[in-house]
Lab assay of single mutants.
Amino acid sequence: SDEEKKVRDQAKRLGVNTEQLLKWARRQGDEDLVRIVERLLRS
């Protein structure tokens, strides 16, 4: 999905993997991002 591509691009920009991005999203309190990243991790 578009959202998932955006998440992957953001992880690349930050230089982190998906698990690290999830931690980062939780720290930001970004519920939408957390949900998308969790979906990516499960897929």
Rank of each mutant, 00 (worst) to 15 (best):
E4L: 13
E19I: 11
V37D: 00
K23F: 08
R8F: 13
D32S: 08
R27W: 14
L22I: 04
L41T: 02
E4Y: 14
K12E: 12
G29M: 06
R35K: 11
D2K: 09
D30E: 05
R8P: 05
S1H: 08
R13E: 04
D9M: 06
E3Q: 11
A25E: 00
D30K: 07
G15N: 06
D32C: 15
E19G: 05
S1G: 07
K23Q: 14
R13L: 12
R8M: 12
V7Y: 06
E3W: 14
N17H: 07
L21F: 04
L22K: 01
K6C: 15
L14V: 04
K6H: 08
G29F: 13
D2T: 09
V7S: 07
V7P: 04
D30P: 05
L22E: 01
R42T: 09
S43N: 12
R27Q: 15
L22H: 01
D30G: 13
V34Y: 04
E31N: 10
A25R: 00
E19F: 11
V7K: 03
V16K: 04
E3P: 11
Q10D: 03
E4C: 14
D32F: 14
G29Y: 13
G29N: 09
S43V: 14
R13H: 06
E3A: 13
G29D: 04
D2C: 15
G29V: 12
R27I: 14
G15F: 10
E3T: 11
K23H: 11
R35T: 05
E38A: 02
Q28G: 01
Q10V: 14
E31S: 12
I36W: 09
L22P: 02
Q20I: 05
D32Y: 13
L14Y: 05
G15K: 09
L40N: 01
K6I: 12
L40A: 02
S1F: 11
L40R: 01
L40H: 02
E19R: 13
D32R: 13
K12W: 09
R26Q: 14
V37A: 02
D2S: 08
W24F: 02
R27T: 14
L21Q: 00
E3H: 10
G29H: 04
W24E: 02
G29W: 08
E38K: 11
Q10M: 15
E31V: 13
A11G: 05
R42G: 11
A11N: 04
A25K: 01
E19W: 13
V34M: 06
G15V: 06
W24G: 01
R13A: 08
L41W: 02
E19P: 03
R8D: 05
E31H: 10
K23L: 15
E38W: 06
K6F: 13
T18S: 09
E38F: 04
E31I: 12
V16Q: 03
Q20K: 09
G29K: 04
R13Q: 05
K6N: 05
R27N: 14
R26Y: 13
E38N: 03
E19A: 09
R8K: 07
D9I: 05
K23W: 13
A25V: 08
V7E: 04
Q20Y: 05
D32P: 01
N17G: 04
Q10I: 15
Q20D: 11
D9K: 06
V16N: 06
D2M: 09
E4Q: 07
V37W: 01
R27Y: 07
Q20T: 06
D2P: 09
R39W: 11
T18H: 13
V37P: 00
R13P: 03
E3F: 12
G15Y: 10
S43P: 10
D30L: 15
R39G: 06
T18D: 05
A25I: 12
K12N: 07
V34G: 01
L22Q: 01
E3C: 13
T18Q: 06
V37Q: 00
W24S: 01
V16T: 04
D30A: 11
A11S: 04
D30Y: 14
Q28Y: 12
L21P: 00
D9Y: 08
R8E: 07
L41R: 02
L14H: 05
Q28D: 02
R27L: 15
E31R: 10
R35S: 06
L40F: 12
L40Y: 13
R26F: 10
R13M: 07
D32A: 12
R8C: 13
S1V: 10
S1D: 12
G29S: 03
Q10E: 11
L33Q: 00
T18K: 09
S1K: 10
D32M: 11
L41P: 00
R8N: 05
V16R: 04
K12Y: 06
V16G: 09
E3N: 13
A25Q: 02
K5Y: 05
K5T: 06
R26A: 08
Q20A: 11
A11T: 03
K12P: 02
R35D: 03
K6L: 13
V34D: 01
R27S: 15
R39Q: 14
N17W: 14
E3V: 13
L21G: 00
R13G: 03
Q28I: 13
G15W: 09
L33F: 05
E4G: 07
T18E: 07
D9N: 07
E31F: 11
K5L: 07
Q10Y: 15
E38V: 06
Q28T: 11
L41H: 01
R13N: 03
L40D: 00
N17Y: 12
V7D: 03
R26K: 14
N17I: 13
E19Q: 09
K5D: 07
I36N: 02
L22V: 02
R39E: 08
D32H: 10
I36P: 00
L21E: 00
R8W: 14
T18V: 15
E31L: 14
S1Q: 10
D30I: 14
R39Y: 08
R26E: 13
R26G: 02
D9R: 03
L33N: 00
V16S: 04
I36S: 02
L22C: 06
D9P: 03
E38G: 02
E19K: 12
L22G: 00
D32Q: 08
V16P: 02
R27K: 14
D2N: 08
A11H: 05
E3Y: 12
D2I: 10
D30C: 14
K23S: 13
K6P: 04
V7G: 07
R42V: 09
D2L: 11
I36A: 08
V34L: 04
R13T: 05
R8S: 05
T18F: 15
L21N: 00
T18I: 15
G15T: 04
R42Y: 13
R27G: 14
D32E: 11
K23R: 12
E4A: 10
W24C: 14
L33I: 04
R42H: 06
K12M: 09
V7W: 09
R35A: 10
L14K: 05
K5N: 06
K23D: 15
W24K: 02
V16C: 15
D9V: 03
K12G: 03
E38T: 06
R35H: 03
T18R: 10
L40M: 11
K23V: 13
K6W: 15
K12T: 11
L33K: 00
Q10S: 05
R39K: 12
A11L: 14
V37H: 00
D2E: 11
S1T: 11
L21C: 08
R8T: 06
E4M: 13
S43R: 13
E38R: 03
Q28H: 14
A11I: 14
D32I: 14
A11C: 15
L14F: 06
L21A: 01
Q10C: 15
E3K: 15
Q20S: 05
L14N: 03
R27P: 01
L41G: 01
L40S: 01
L21S: 00
V37K: 00
E31P: 11
R42N: 09
S1N: 10
D2H: 10
K5H: 06
S1Y: 10
S43D: 11
Q28W: 14
V34H: 01
V34T: 02
R39T: 06
T18M: 15
S43Y: 14
R39L: 08
D9A: 09
L41I: 08
E38M: 10
Q20C: 15
W24Q: 01
R39A: 11
R39N: 05
A25S: 01
V34S: 01
S43Q: 13
L40V: 05
L33E: 00
R35F: 04
L33M: 02
I36F: 11
N17L: 12
V7H: 04
D32G: 06
I36Q: 05
L21R: 00
K23Y: 12
D2W: 13
T18Y: 15
E3G: 10
G15R: 11
V16A: 05
A25L: 14
L41M: 04
K5F: 08
K23E: 15
R35Q: 07
K5Q: 10
E4D: 07
K6E: 05
S43G: 10
K23P: 01
K5W: 07
E4N: 07
Q20M: 07
N17M: 07
L14S: 03
K6R: 12
E4S: 07
G15E: 03
R35Y: 03
Q20W: 12
D32L: 12
R42P: 01
K23A: 14
V34P: 00
I36G: 01
